[in-house]
Simulated scan of single mutants.
Amino acid sequence: MPLLMSFRRWWAVIFFAILTLPTIGLVAPDAPAPLRTVLEPEAHWWEEAAKRLDPFINNAFGFRGAVLAAHRSYMRFMGDTQGDLALKGENGSLFLKDEHALEQSLGQLVRPEAVSGFVAFAERMNAYMKARGGRFVVLIPPNGHTTNFENLPAYARRLKTSPTEYDLVAQQMKAAGLTFVDMRPILAEAKKVGPVHWRYDTHWNQRGMLLGFNAAMAAAGRPDLAVKAEDALGPAEPRLTGDLLRATGARVPNPPDVQFPPKGPMVPPKEQTLIPGLFKPVAPHDPFVPYAVDTGHPGPRIMVIGDSFSQGSWRGLGISAASAYSWQHHRYCRFDMESVERFKPDILIYAPTERAMPCKGEPENWPKAAADAGKAG
């Protein structure tokens, strides 16, 4: 009898096609999906594959957008719109459940070694900039869980303890004599007259963005570069979207979120003179493409090493304040240091959001120039 009878051959073809779908999905067009939070496996992933490789696989499998969309549809059908992506708080507020952000903001996750490593990294960068006559500023945009703490579920608020990692960083930065901007009291004061962080999104709103930029300029010794709210923000209006709404498939709550349309210096100019040859090429689908702009007017050379909290929101502000303005992703302390050396900033701002604060990898994998500056200092 033949190994594969005629009626079984079609089943073999179908079975083989199903097995190849994940591979095809890596290159085939896909449905929109949330940004990938892990772009590459950690170093030596084969030593602890379950810990170091799984996060990358969870961000890079074939037909990721379609699978996540199907999962959201299924969860809505089951009556649960949250899944594993968001935590529902008071008044319909949503909070990220990923990256241990909740535990970090509550003080339930405190990593003293990670905090000390981050401060040591900041000391190296400060020594590098000081040796070149520049200013180094560290500014940490808080998690939504920290800024909108009152909207967390009641059980979570009861778990709050101290010190948190943010507390430890603030203490150690001060003890080391580093220029550090603690955004928590600044945002808390501003909240008395209006929201500073979206309720259905992981990011701060336009008021928070502006407050952060102005605080960074003041810390760098250039308060004259701060921008007034009336010059940069329009009147409050409803916001009917948010990354956590999109990620969970939840409907727009009532009331919706609030936004302040940017205007004036907060809106990047349409015509920009990009500085070529500054950065190494990034992957085609990398959401964090670095940029550098020659503004053509007087001002300091400003570089921001941050993430989505500053990527686009500070572009207009930076261009209006600097003679040259640049931004790149921090890569958890593993950014492109050679671009910093080529750009030669007068002001270097390191601004990872709270949950992305800890450096990844060993110190020898951090920017070489920073390590050299630490030795020299």
Rank of each mutant, 00 (worst) to 15 (best):
L3N: 13
L3S: 02
F7L: 13
R9Q: 12
W11E: 11
W11L: 14
V13M: 04
I14G: 10
F15A: 15
I24Y: 08
A28L: 14
R36A: 01
H44N: 15
W45V: 06
W46A: 14
D54H: 15
N58M: 15
R64L: 09
L68C: 05
L68P: 00
A69Q: 12
M75K: 08
M75H: 07
Q82I: 00
Q82A: 15
K88Y: 04
K88D: 00
S93C: 06
S93L: 01
L94P: 15
L94I: 09
D98A: 14
E99T: 07
P112S: 00
A114S: 01
G117T: 01
A120S: 13
F121H: 08
E123N: 04
E123S: 14
M125F: 15
R135S: 12
H145T: 00
T147L: 11
T147E: 11
T147W: 10
T147A: 15
N148C: 10
F149R: 14
N151K: 14
A154G: 01
R157H: 02
V169S: 00
A176T: 02
T179N: 04
F180L: 09
R184F: 01
A188N: 06
E189P: 05
E189Y: 00
A190E: 08
T202R: 07
H203G: 06
W204H: 02
M209Q: 08
L210I: 13
L210Y: 12
N214W: 05
A216M: 08
G221C: 01
R222I: 11
P223Y: 12
E230F: 01
A232F: 04
R239M: 12
L244F: 05
L245E: 05
T248W: 07
V252T: 15
P256L: 07
Q259T: 15
K263M: 13
K263H: 09
P268C: 12
P276D: 05
G277D: 05
L278W: 07
V282H: 09
D286V: 09
H297I: 04
R301A: 15
V304Y: 04
I305H: 02
D307P: 00
D307Q: 00
S308Y: 10
G312Y: 13
G316V: 11
S320W: 05
S323W: 02
F335I: 01
F335E: 03
E338N: 14
T353F: 11
E354C: 04
M357L: 10
M357T: 02
P358L: 02
C359D: 00
C359H: 02
G361K: 06
P363Q: 05
E364Y: 08
P367K: 11
P367Q: 10
A371D: 10
A373Q: 08
G374K: 13
